[in-house]
Amino acid sequence: MAEIIGGITTSHIPAVGNAITDGLTQEHYWKRFFDGYKPVKAWLEEKQPDLVIVVYNDHGLNFFLDKVPTFAIGCADKYENADEGWGLKPTAPFDGDAPFSWHVAESLINQEFDMCTCQEMLVDHGFVNPMRVLFGDHEEWPIKAIPLAVNTVQHPLPSARRCFKLGQALKVAVESYPEDMKVVIAGTGGMSHQLQGERAGMINVDYDLACIESIINNPEWFADQSNSHIIEQAGTEGIETIMWMVMRGALGEKVNCLHKHYHAPISNTGAGVLLLEGAG
């Protein structure tokens, strides 16, 4: 049977990808942030998962505002990265696993999460940068990857609690797949940041650390918060942190925290890295 062996959280901002491309990861500004991934990379190296489900939001590459699915899942064998308007060179394509995706989609829909199923899905920096920071750059990626997109761009958005429940359903979906497979869930984005308006540049370290503690030990605290409250505390774009709740829901009631890392600022954001294992 397929098994969820752990959950990871990570930033997905464009500046992270640019720092990797430009070879800046050991520069003073970036070093502490990137070094904080080493234990996660060592764990991935040791555990050799077969597949990662990357929970992220599309920023206007695959989805335009004409059709915005609240939750969408890639159901293809391959996912391409593409130009988001900045003229950057796309990464190598990512191998998916269509039968696995369709199983997960069917199970989620049977559990009343009405997923948008995508047989073509361009993946943007929200998906690509977590892959690059966790696995390095490759012409052939060492792991299969499935994009799971959450709308955090055009309100109304799903609530933190809804994301948590999606994660709980995702656990049932993955663990009912008959093939032996080690699966990791990556919750990406966040933490506090605001790119727009007079409040641009806000970072709320206190709130970020409270979210980290909640996600590890008491997800109900974060699940109870309204999106308006989260925006007030974490910024208009900091709302992305709700996607971590999909990862957290997929790990079960209690978790062991194997690694906890926080850094600010990374570009405009507070950045949190967690490595969690389900503990029943």
């Binding site: 206007g60 308007g85 055009q154 309100h155 109304p156 727009q196 308006g197 409040r199 308006s228 007030e232």
Partner: peptide, 28 residues
């Protein structure tokens, strides 16, 4: 919405998405 009252913040919701649809389509 409650979020309308957060100072210095412009939450991108249906109202903004509707009025600026052509603009965002051009950027897309």
């Amino acid at each position: 919405h409650e979020y309308d009252n957060i100072p210095g913040s412009y939450v991108f919701d249906g109202k903004r998405a509707h009025s600026a649809y052509a603009l965002n389509k051009l950027f897309y």
